[in-house]
């Protein structure tokens, strides 16, 4: 059974990689297959692990009828498919936006803004590597923020500082790009590792 799974996975991997040569029916088949399987899996999983244990069972076995309220809001989201009653979905959307905004604002201030401001207030004492690192962080944050100050033309001191800011931004982009290259190569390594050690080598014993 495992061997069949490995052969299917290896075959589909090769179908997907065949796109690197050019678009072809094998690639299209694998792509459609992946989308279909993912959607089917998602649907079954949602029913088995969400709707069944979190809605049907509590109502049937424990009489938790209060769950009918969120179920109703969930159902009217589907009203968007019927133009005449599509307005009903706005109630659910309003509920989600309200909760999302409430949680988001407090979470952002508490989890991002304040800790990050605290982390930028750093000591610069004496000539040592820690002070140098702290200085780079402070200069980086201030000059980057100044780069995004658009209420005054970037000339003179503001021009110089924003140029330093854009340099920091470029370095950050470079680091991000480097990491992205690493990520893509890692995925390739993962697939080749699978093809070589789980598929090809066992074939030849």
């Amino acid at each position: 059974m495992i061997t069949i799974g490995i052969w299917i996975a290896a075959g589909l991997t090769l179908c997907i990689y065949s796109f690197l040569y050019k678009d072809n029916p094998f690639y299209k088949f694998a792509e459609s297959f992946y989308v279909g399987i993912s959607a089917g899996y998602w649907l079954i999983y949602t029913y088995a692990y969400v709707i069944q244990p979190m809605l049907i069972e509590p109502i049937r076995n424990r009489g938790e009828f209060v769950l009918l309220i969120p179920a109703f809001f969930g159902l009217i989201m589907l009203s968007r498919w019927v133009p005449k009653i599509a307005w009903l979905s706005r109630w659910s959307i309003a509920f989600m936006v309200g909760i999302g905004a409430g949680l988001g604002v407090t979470g952002y201030i508490q989890g991002f803004l304040i800790p990050q401001i605290q982390a930028t207030i750093l000591p610069i004492t004496g000539f040592n590597i820690t002070s140098l690192n702290n200085l780079i962080i402070i200069v980086g944050v201030i000059t980057t923020l100044l780069y995004f100050y658009f209420s005054k033309e970037h000339k003179g001191i503001l021009g110089w500082t924003s140029r330093i800011g854009i340099t920091f931004i470029m370095i950050a982009f470079g680091a991000s790009f480097g990491y992205t290259v690493m990520a893509r190569i890692s995925l390739l390594i993962g697939r080749f590792y699978f093809l070589i050690y789980d598929w090809i080598i066992p074939i030849f014993g």
């Binding site: 989890g111 982390a119 990491y179 992205t180």
Partner: peptide, 15 residues
């Protein structure tokens, strides 16, 4: 690796 650069500032801040 794609997401890692977005988390370094959490590490620097001790979060």
């Amino acid at each position: 690796a794609v997401s890692a650069p977005d988390a370094y500032f959490f590490f620097q801040s001790g979060q």
